[in-house]
Design a protein around this nucleic acid. Structure first.
Lengths: 341, 341
DNA sequence: AGCGTGATTGCATACGGATGCAAAGTCGCT
DNA sequence: AGCGACTTTGCATCCGTATGCAATCACGCT
């Protein structure tokens, strides 16, 4: 064995003060320090003020790790992400982190290889004893969900809906209605040879948008749209899909914006078609680039700020114990008309 | 006081096993369980195997929180980000998280309002007792750095270099040489009325790229470039900057790609200029969109995978105690010639 | 004055693992 | 057989907070 016995851990840097030291400094018990920092604890207002002032002066801050161990609650939320390369998600991540930070929670980031279920990081989540998980762009198997839930832990699917019977809280926009709206927008422009470009086929987002799209056509007695499966949600996949549709369709609904941008470029630069004159294109998400002059993509905007706010609310309710049966929140998508149709 | 005394915390969900329970199950001491999970600890191979197998069966995983408290080391690295809206950073974040995960470290994500120093989250970092910080796209004041460093803690600036005397480890690409290369590329195309578009003026990236650019011109006895300060690193800022330069320059070096894309769109769609016929454009970073047909931007590619790897190595060295004086790593940028010049 | 009631405070211990140190066990060699 | 050297194990304690419970204190009322 080669590990030399170390001195009793790294000597704590002198700037780090513990509750006990602060307490001794004040001539009170450590409990009082702890209570000064717990809202609603049994402590006289003057005492609390005295402790807080001293803490300020000496630079004391409760050790979150120790508090987590003791309280069995870490104030850490895991965010599981897969497709950070889709510009929709960085925006979500940023807002989510900020909202959680504002709620006194920190974000532990987990990335999962795209296409993989989120299950692979469940062991880590358990090791880190995170209070909650927000799962975006990566699904969680029913078994995984069942294993995860249980005692005070919370989980929210973001931009995903639960497959199967395991009911988790979820927040997404109304993809079904969005799909219908896309159909209506294309039809309103007189397009009749419509096509749908699916992203990853096993995602609820792609499925629901497609169902809404098809339903709107069916209700009008129109034939179902052409369908191309892009395989994943990426620029390149959209590019390929659009090439496959060249000449076949005069109106294409892409399952999301990043696909649509790839498609737009393919149609214009490879197929030599004019958009919207020859082909109309509509996307979903409203990522920043959709508004750029090079694209001016008409799309359905996901209300990300509202979705984030709702997700955090659901989490807090679940963590606070006030929470009924799991809810599936559906916020409306808004049509943003630009120049691609 | 209104808090009802709770039962002794939430009853641990039955699936969570502690080291003590596992030990009792095996008829050994808790120490053995702990040692089975600590590489290099004093334990017989058969014992370790027995413990690990039982752990597998019963689903035991060490509680990272408890371990962190005891070992005074959390295995958590804070990543401080500001500009998640610049597509360069999501890629960095993804790779960084993955590399850290592979190194047994988790990423706690902190976002800072753009333009703010990273200091505002120092208190939180201290509360969470993170082992290390990776600071990207947000600077840290010297005072903040000084306060942070000290005992076993590590900090790495990513895509930033330390201002002032406080020497922190840093990893960036060679922005100076990159700036020179940009000048050379533009000059090789016969452009002579050159301009530089700065991003946030107080960032080392913008400053160094500009210095390299100017130096290359100066060495050839050419006049200094025009200069526009975009204000921040955003599409819109690049757009505005390009409009200001219309007719003034025939070759523009944008401090990064996102600025360049905004500039490109402004030149083509607003100013009615042809790129590269009328104006040549070069960027920096090589974000995915630079390669898209709508842009085909010539740019200097930052070697992100190598930078991430280096950053993690530096961190580990610093955490492991093997680390000399702070190092400023500079990896070379590579010219990616496309069609914007 | 005596006692009850509610507000504060301190004490002691738990949270789940890591680890210095001593005890116990294993071998090999003289 | 006896003893030293090394390997494994167990014991006890610490990490820094939170919190149930008992003790203390202040005050008001009979």
């Amino acid at each position: 064995m080669e590990v030399a016995p170390r001195p009793p851990a790294t000597p704590a840097s002198p700037t780090v003060i513990t509750a006990r030291e602060l307490a001794r400094h004040l001539g009170v018990s450590q409990s009082m320090v702890s209570r000064a920092f717990s809202p609603g604890a049994s402590i006289a207002p003057e005492m609390r003020a005295r402790v807080l002032r001293a803490a300020e002066e000496l630079g004391y801050r409760p050790n979150v790790i120790a508090a987590a161990l003791s309280r069995r609650r870490s104030s850490i939320v895991a965010i599981v992400m897969a497709e950070l390369t889709n510009p929709f998600y960085p925006a979500v991540l940023e807002q989510l982190t900020e909202a959680l930070q504002a709620a006194g929670l920190q974000s532990l980031l987990f990335t999962v290889p795209p296409g993989q279920p989120a299950d692979s990081c469940l062991p880590l989540l358990r090791q880190y004893h995170v209070d909650a998980v927000v799962i975006t762009s990566a699904s969680l198997s029913s078994a995984g969900a069942a294993e995860w839930l249980g005692d005070g832990r919370a989980a929210v699917l973001f931009n995903r809906t639960a497959a199967g019977p395991t009911a988790l809280d979820s927040v997404a926009c109304d993809n079904l209605a969005g799909g219908r709206a896309a159909a209506e927008a294309l039809l309103a422009q007189g397009r009749r040879r419509l096509a749908f470009v699916a992203g990853r086929a096993d995602t609820s987002t792609s499925q629901d948008r497609e169902r809404g799209f098809r339903a709107a056509l069916a209700e009008r007695g129109l034939p179902p749209p052409l369908r191309v499966e892009a395989g994943d949600f990426s620029y390149e996949a959209g590019h390929r899909a659009a090439l496959a549709l060249t000449g076949e369709a005069d109106g294409i609904f892409f399952a999301n914006d990043i696909l649509a941008l790839g498609g737009l470029d393919a149609l214009r630069h490879e197929s030599g078609l004019r958009v919207p004159a020859d082909v109309a294109v509509i996307g979903f998400d409203d990522i920043p680039m959709a508004a750029w002059p090079a694209y001016r993509l008409t799309t359905l905007r996901q209300p990300v700020p509202a979705m984030v706010a709702r997700a955090v609310e659901l989490l807090q309710a679940r963590l606070g114990g006030t929470a009924g049966p799991p809810r599936g929140e559906r916020l409306p998508a808004e049509l943003v008309a630009r120049q691609s149709l």
